[in-house]
Design a protein around this nucleic acid. Structure first.
Lengths: 243, 243
DNA sequence: CGGTTGTTTGACGCAGTTCAAGCGGAGTGG
DNA sequence: CCACTCCGCTTGAACTGCGTCAAACAACCG
């Protein structure tokens, strides 16, 4: 199934799998579902009996606070296993929400356990994937704690580009990111108004522009420098940055 | 060895281990080392061949930015395995630093792998532990993104109390937390001056006071309410909050 | 007793918020 | 085909939480 290529690419980035392992992984992606934008793929407090793998679309993990404020905690692209942790951690301490229309695979926990038992290296790859999630969280903390809004936004675009290139969803310096400025504000811990102003500044500085849900990076080295971006924390190996 | 009780308590919080598993875990904690305050237990960029378990003291994960600014990403107390991820993720994308004098156990990765192979349930407990780290990171993101300084500080004290009680390092509503206000500032993404003012306000509001490296919570329910704290994300089970 | 490290206080400035309003495009119904 | 509405984007002005700078103070230690 064509939709599993991103998922495979993600899992294999660090260590090639055997045909056997690859087949086993694709096999468990069987049952798929679609969600509309703004639907919850998995609500906070749920006790799911399956884990979710993103096949297409953009989703996020988020927490809702009193008075309806929301903080997005990570973005999830195709290939990401966004609630693998529900295998061991119940109930969900945060929600997973579709930001755009999404198709996902839902893998029963029992199936995950079985595949891990039979293919220990897949289990290791899964564990590794959750550890990289942790690394991305840490970087997000650094952004929110010590980077100005301008740098923070620039940094996210750098991260998105690299992650999307790694799974073949961006060529060159452009990629789809059909989020509203309100979504971005919830991700950055900023107000909508300020996100808007920062985006304008990034564009007029000739670094990135975002229009119609598509991001175009006009000056990768400049953006990278402005963002103090270094892709090490993504643990994706080489050949992942644009020329 | 008395120092391993916190580590065991942490690991066993969710599922009791067999005597066998317990013994296997304590056995690998053999080689210990001590670090002075402000020493690096594990520097950024290193490629360690072992993982570190905290036995006593307080450490942190942190990232250093340009111009020497620092962002602390998590606090590590006794019992925490603070770089278990180095088993699968190399090189270190952040550093681990001792905030106070610390004693740690250093477990060769090969030993970890072997123990996991022989005791799958220990492997699961390890994985689980790294997943809880992730949950703590997410909460930290929410704090930095959407909580005011006052709430953020209150929240950390709530988290510290609950985590320390869970491993038997706090009785009632007091615990040791011998950090400087500069350390706290780096953790909260605030300036030292502002941390100082917030601490004063928390004290004069009768919620918490921190003096001589000891934290005393005077009004748990009040603090919890002010912090919008709910311990669910720590996945520690019941009986962990003070009466 | 002086040096060093951590805490406290005050005055001032700025990054980012809030409020409020206007604008433009897409969908919908008459 | 136009009118109406909704949603997202944009702009301006006023406000504020927190940072910066600078200095005094307190505790510890050799």
């Amino acid at each position: 199934m064509a939709t599993s290529t991103a998922a495979l690419r993600k899992l294999e980035r660090n260590e090639a799998l055997t045909d056997d392992e690859r087949a086993a992984y694709v096999a468990i992606l069987g049952r798929t579902r679609t969600f509309g934008a703004r639907e919850d793929i998995m609500p906070e407090g749920a006790r799911p009996t399956f884990s979710t793998v993103m096949l297409t679309g953009v989703a996020c993990r988020y927490r809702t606070m009193l008075e309806g404020r929301r903080q997005i905690v990570s973005l999830q692209f195709a290939g990401d296993m966004c609630d693998l942790h529900s295998l061991l951690l119940q109930p969900m301490d945060h929600a997973i929400g579709a930001l755009t229309a999404c198709t996902v695979a839902q893998i029963p926990h029992e199936t995950v356990r079985e595949v891990v038992r039979r293919h220990p290296r897949l289990g290791e790859a899964f564990w590794r994937d959750t550890l990289i999630d942790g690394a991305v969280f840490r970087e997000w903390i650094v952004s929110l704690g010590r980077r100005t809004a301008y740098v923070r936004v620039a940094h996210l675009f750098c991260e998105a580009l690299v992650r999307l290139r790694a799974v073949g969803l961006a060529e060159g310096c452009e990629f789809d990111l059909p989020l509203t400025q309100a979504d971005l504000a919830d991700a950055f811990g900023l107000s909508i108004v300020h996100v808007n102003r920062v985006l304008q500044r990034l564009r007029s500085d000739g670094l990135v522009s975002m229009r119609g849900g598509r991001v175009a990076i006009h000056d990768w080295r400049g953006l990278k420098a402005a963002a103090e971006f270094s892709p090490a924390y993504l643990h994706l190996g080489a050949d992942v940055e644009p020329a």
